[in-house]
């Protein structure tokens, strides 16, 4: 177990022992990564903020059922991944996108009608990275999820297999396809 993992466990023990405020440390440690994943899934900045918050609250509420059979980070990411999955499922505009986008590269230039940019974000995010985020969020569901986990969160193949509950070979295939998809899109947008 790495240092970072045992640190997590120490904090969790404190939280479960009644020191609820210690949970801030978990939020601090994971918020950037969690947000970048969620923002890739949910294109709206404010919505992504709310969901990030919800994911932490849910993690806190479920903390006692964390069995410590995996790393805390893996467990936390499964909560996050499943939350986003359900959220998109319930939100018809995401269904629309994934239907169109799963047909292939050619169908890709459809824009979401209710897309709205956050002015605060515009200032801070470089144009090229905004395009990267946009194109990631338009990937077909399975590829977007895996790409975010592998190339945004930097998780290992094994961790991803655990989080998604799929086989290693399946993980590999999705990584290949997701990367190829994204590469073609960034090429079409003149970024690479």
């Amino acid at each position: 177990m790495s240092n970072s993992d045992s640190e997590d466990i120490q904090v969790i023990d404190r939280v479960l022992g009644g020191d609820v405020e210690a949970f801030t440390q978990i939020i601090d440690k994971y918020k950037d990564k969690a947000f970048n994943y969620i923002y890739g899934q949910i294109k709206d900045y404010d919505e992504a903020m709310d969901i990030t918050q919800e994911v932490f609250i849910m993690t806190m509420e479920a903390l006692r059922s964390f069995r410590r059979e995996s790393k805390f980070s893996t467990w936390f990411y499964s909560i996050m991944v499943n939350y986003c999955k359900n959220y998109r499922k319930k939100n018809s505009r995401y269904n629309l996108v994934s239907m169109n986008s799963s047909r292939g590269d050619e169908e890709y230039d459809l824009q979401l009608p209710d897309e709205r940019e956050n002015p605060e974000e515009e200032v801070i995010m470089k144009e090229s990275l905004r395009i990267v985020r946009d194109e990631i969020s338009k990937l077909p569901d399975d590829y977007r999820e895996i790409l975010l986990l592998r190339d945004i969160q930097g998780l290992s193949y094994n961790e991803i297999a655990g989080i998604l509950g799929i086989s290693l070979s399946n993980v590999k295939v999705r990584i290949h396809r997701g990367r190829e998809f994204l590469k073609n899109r960034l090429l079409a947008r003149g970024l690479i």
């Binding site: 801030t24 601090d28 970048n36 923002y39 990275l129 945004i152 970024l191």
Partner: peptide
């Protein structure tokens, strides 16, 4: 492509108040 992904992953977007709001909800 993957270099751009890493750049995006390294972004620290403004998450002002996220800690406070989350903790007060908890």
């Amino acid at each position: 492509t993957l270099k751009l992904c890493r750049e995006y992953a390294g972004l620290s977007l403004p998450l002002d108040g996220l800690n406070d709001r989350t903790m007060s909800k908890i």
